[in-house]
C-alpha cells in the first residue's frame, strides 16, 4: 500500500443533492457518508472501507468497489487510486464451513 499524503488540502465538505443515494447496497452506505469520510481524513479506499464497511457485505464489493473508488477519487481530486486490499476469504463463507479446514486431505 502506498503512503498517503495527508497534507493535501481538499477543501471543505460541501453537501450535494444526491448525498442520500445508497452506493454500497449490502451495508447501506450512502454517497454522502463516503464523501464525509474522505473529508474526515480517510484518504484512500482502505480507510473508507474500514470506517464504513462499504464493500464488506455479502457481495464483497462486487457491485460497489468501483463506485466507491470513483467517489473517493473525485473527492480527493485525483484520477488514479489504488484498489482496496484483497483478502481471503474471497467469497462469503459460513463460519462452520470456513472452520472445517480439511487442510490438504
Amino acid at each position: 500500500m502506498s503512503a498517503v499524503d495527508r497534507t493535501r488540502d481538499i477543501g471543505e465538505y460541501v453537501p450535494a443533492q444526491d448525498d442520500d443515494m445508497i452506493v454500497c447496497r449490502c451495508e447501506e452506505i450512502t454517497k454522502g457518508e463516503i464523501r464525509r469520510a474522505v473529508h474526515d481524513g480517510m484518504y484512500n479506499v482502505h480507510e473508507v472501507r474500514r470506517l464504513l464497511r462499504c464493500g464488506m457485505g455479502l457481495c464483497q464489493g462486487q457491485t460497489c468497489a468501483r463506485l466507491v473508488k470513483s467517489i473517493v477519487a473525485r473527492e480527493l481530486g485525483v484520477r488514479s487510486l489504488e484498489d482496496a486490499t484483497a483478502r481471503a476469504p474471497m467469497r462469503p463463507i459460513e463460519m462452520s464451513v470456513f472452520a472445517n479446514d480439511g487442510g490438504g486431505e
Binding site: D18, M21, V23, K31, Q62, T63, C64, R66, L67, P89, R91, I93, V97, F98, N100, D101, G102, G103, G104, E105
Partner: peptide
Amino acid sequence: RHADGVRHYKGDTVIVATGASENMLTFE
C-alpha cells in the same frame, strides 16, 4: 471451498481465469 469445508491444493503452475464483473451506475 467445498460443500462442507475448505481444502488446500498445490499447483506447480496456476492460471487465474476469473473473468470480470459488470460495472454499475448510480442514479436516482
